[in-house]
Design a binder for these strands. Structure first.
Length: 711
DNA sequence: TTTAGGG
DNA sequence: CCCTAAA
């Protein structure tokens, strides 16, 4: 069998892959890539249909292969050819399927498991005063707390959303701690719950939704862990007749913003073709952007860049921009948690890492953050109260599985731009911050649930299904408030945000004037939405930035110390940017967040193995192109790293392995390929100088190694 | 930009 | 996964 296959394919198992490596320069660009890829892709696509069968076969084949290992090479070849060819395509296919399924597919299905109701009790603060001025009571940190900031911002908002925000803010500030979520298994209020639950779903826990604008007093949100199936569709939610613009926005944002979704989509689509041509660029762009963002450069002002870019080039760059933004977005949210955790560990404080340009913004958040993390009690100092993620989750839930209890210590502020002249008074500063906060709030926020740093997007899943149980991961449970960025539906908008902004003090600017962003609708960051309700097409933006939290502990006064930080350059956007970084604590906060962790699925591993078998190690870029072209989140470096871990995994005992178990068969192939290519020196042209001889001699070795392991 | 490795 | 030195 093996031999046959080989012959068919025309090359022996690990031999140098089909595509001789061209000099990098040549290889590089599009044309080359594309061509090759396309052809491959086509093949892939075709094969894709067969994938299912192949899988089955594969398994069987694997079994057979093991048995037949007698010939050293044969094993490989077998694998390679037998499975390999067949599999080849799989990856693509699989991916298409997987991504979606993994994250979202789950939803509707299993409602079954425990029905857990979650109740959120939020205390509300006094409703903002409707007069032009909002009063926000900031209980900022303990000591400071009780300052009230008068915000010029006018309540114009009226919208529920705004209200919600306000409420939130209040809560956040003063009472964050107050916010408690308890999950009751009880079925009480079935109906009511349901309603709320739905709302929540749709809104993704939009505060607005949860809080009735009018009733400041207490909100009890209950939602059944299991959501109604309908809710799945976010769109539907958006569509909700509900007048609140906020809703629609939220939803949109989410979707748009979420990188995952995008990726998934992209994956699926990509194979198709056309897009491809552009893709590479896009990807690269992303990458680049990412780097930039991540890197120190960030400080400078990613935003600016984005803005610029977007402006200049609409098209391609535009994409980039988006991507980037998206990226950030996700990252921010997801990653944030990670960092946060770390930070927490070290300090209990929630430092938002953020590091981004947001810094400028961050200030306010920082303050807030700094204030105290300490208590669960109203920690968030207000201003930024808007903040996003829940910091500490206590797992108090003792008892029954049915209840999941935890307290949200604080939320992080997504991003605030504050611009204040140095000469400004503290009071002004406070107001400014407050405005920024309210601006964000006005837009509306939606809540995202994170578990282990990963967003759980499927609103329909139950807590149990999502892995949130009283016993398990409460510590890894987090929440984020995300601004709704997306395109606001204009119609809707009227009600909310815009007016408010406009009304708001022009001077104070929630956004730093400095940031050019403002100008361009495109570059919006979080704040943007506020002011630019309608405009943003691009808005996907990075709303997420996490503000960099300055570790500085200004428990006592938030404002003052920070204020400087806040200081915005009055005039120049650029300057402001520059300034900002300085203020912040530069370093650590800036650290970019890690990318969200995305464990390789078995199918991905298989694709990787397959590709490596064919291409060898040392050609990660080619591996990427061959097997993961559609997976934007898998870089060649990632693949290389994964291979490294696979090799390691294959060498350790199964008991020592963690995560999703990788079929032994694949691990065997990993070892075999690893050994094989080690000798072959895949890297070099592959053709074998020594290899000729080596191969022969070595081959046996490989086999042995392989055999030994697998069997 | 890619590779190759260390962290 | 990240970060980087080398290439």
């Amino acid at each position: 069998m093996v031999l046959k296959k080989r012959l068919e394919h025309g090359f022996s198992g690990f031999q140098v892959p089909t595509i001789p490596r061209a000099p990098r320069s040549a290889r590089r660009r599009d044309p080359y890539k594309k061509k090759v890829d396309d052809s491959q892709i086509c093949a892939f696509e075709l094969l894709a249909s067969l994938a299912g069968k192949l899988l089955q076969e594969t398994e069987s084949s694997s079994a057979s292969s093991n048995a037949s290992e007698g010939n050293n090479r044969s094993a490989f070849e077998k694998d390679v050819f037998k499975q390999g060819r067949q599999h080849k395509d799989k990856p693509v296919k699989k991916e298409c399927v997987e991504p979606g399924s993994s994250e979202e597919s789950v939803f509707a299905n299993e409602l079954t498991s425990g029905n857990i109701d979650q109740k959120f009790t939020m205390r509300e603060f006094p409703p903002p005063e409707s007069d032009g001025v909002l009063e926000c009571t900031q209980n900022i940190t303990k000591s400071d707390c009780s300052d009230k900031v008068n915000c010029d911002v006018k309540p114009v908002i009226c919208n529920s959303s705004k209200r919600a925000f306000e409420n939130n803010v209040n809560k956040v500030e003063g009472s964050f701690p107050h916010v408690e979520e308890s999950y009751h298994s009880n079925v009480e209020n079935g109906i009511e719950r349901r309603k709320q639950g739905e709302r929540l779903e749709t809104g993704g826990l939009t505060l607005a939704n949860t809080c009735s604008p009018n009733d400041p007093i207490e909100l009890c949100v209950k939602f059944p862990a299991m959501i109604s199936p309908d809710s799945n569709v976010k769109l539907s939610l958006f569509r909700d007749p509900v007048p609140n613009a906020s809703f629609s926005r939220h939803r949109n944002d989410i979707k748009l913003g979420s990188r995952d979704d995008d990726e998934n989509l992209s994956r699926c689509k990509k194979p198709s073709t056309k897009v491809k041509a552009y893709r590479p660029l896009a990807r690269i762009g992303d990458r680049r952007i990412r780097k930039l963002l991540t890197s120190k450069y960030w400080k400078v002002a990613p935003k600016l860049r984005d803005c610029e870019v977007s402006r200049n080039d609409g098209g391609a760059k535009h994409l980039r921009y988006k991507r980037k933004t998206c990226y950030n977005h996700d990252r921010c949210h997801h990653d944030t948690l990670y960092k946060r955790r770390k930070l927490f560990d070290q300090r209990s404080v929630v430092t938002s890492d953020g590091g981004f340009s947001s810094e400028s913004v961050s200030n306010s958040p920082e303050k807030a953050m700094n204030g105290d993390k300490s208590d669960s009690t109203g920690i968030l100092h207000g201003a930024t109260g808007v903040s996003s993620s829940v910091i500490g989750c206590q797992k108090s839930f003792h008892s029954k599985d049915s209840h999941v209890k935890f307290s949200i210590k604080s939320f992080r502020v997504p991003e605030l731009y504050v611009d204040v002249p140095e000469t400004a008074t503290i009071g002004l500063l406070k107001r400014t911050v407050m405005e920024a906060v309210t601006a964000i709030l006005q837009d509306g926020l939606h809540v995202e649930v994170l578990l282990q740093g990963k967003k759980i997007r499927d609103d329909n899943r139950t807590l149990l299904q999502s892995g949130i149980s009283a016993k398990d991961n409460l510590d890894t449970l987090g929440f984020t408030l995300e601004p709704n960025i997306e395109e606001t539906t204009p119609s809707m908008c009227s009600s909310d945000p815009l007016p408010s902004l406009s009304c708001d003090t022009p001077e104070l600017l929630t956004r730093s004037p400095s940031t050019p962003i403002v100008d361009t609708g495109t570059c919006d960051d979080l704040p943007k939405p506020l002011p630019l309700p309608l405009t943003n097409s691009d808005t996907q933006v990075q709303s997420n930035h996490e503000s960099v939290s300055s570790p500085t502990d200004t428990l006592t006064n938030e404002v003052i110390p920070d204020s400087q930080a806040l200081v915005a350059v009055p005039d120049m956007s650029m300057e402001a940017l520059a300034v900002i970084p300085v203020n912040q604590k530069p370093r650590r906060s800036e650290l970019v967040q890690r990318r969200t962790r995305r464990p390789f699925s078995v199918s991905e591993v298989e694709a990787l193995v397959q590709a490596v078998e064919e291409l060898g190690t040392g050609r990660w870029r080619d591996v990427k192109l061959r097997a993961f072209e559609d997976a934007d989140h898998r870089t060649y470096v990632d693949l290389k790293d994964k291979w490294k871990t696979l090799v390691h995994t294959a060498k350790i005992s199964p008991q020592q392995r963690r995560g999703e178990p990788v079929p032994q068969e694949l691990l065997d192939r990993v070892l075999a390929a690893h050994a094989y290519w080690a000798q072959h020196q895949a890297k070099q042209h592959g053709k074998h100088n020594q290899s000729g001889t080596l191969m022969i001699t070595e081959a046996p070795a490989d086999r042995q190694g392989v055999e030994g392991i697998p069997m």
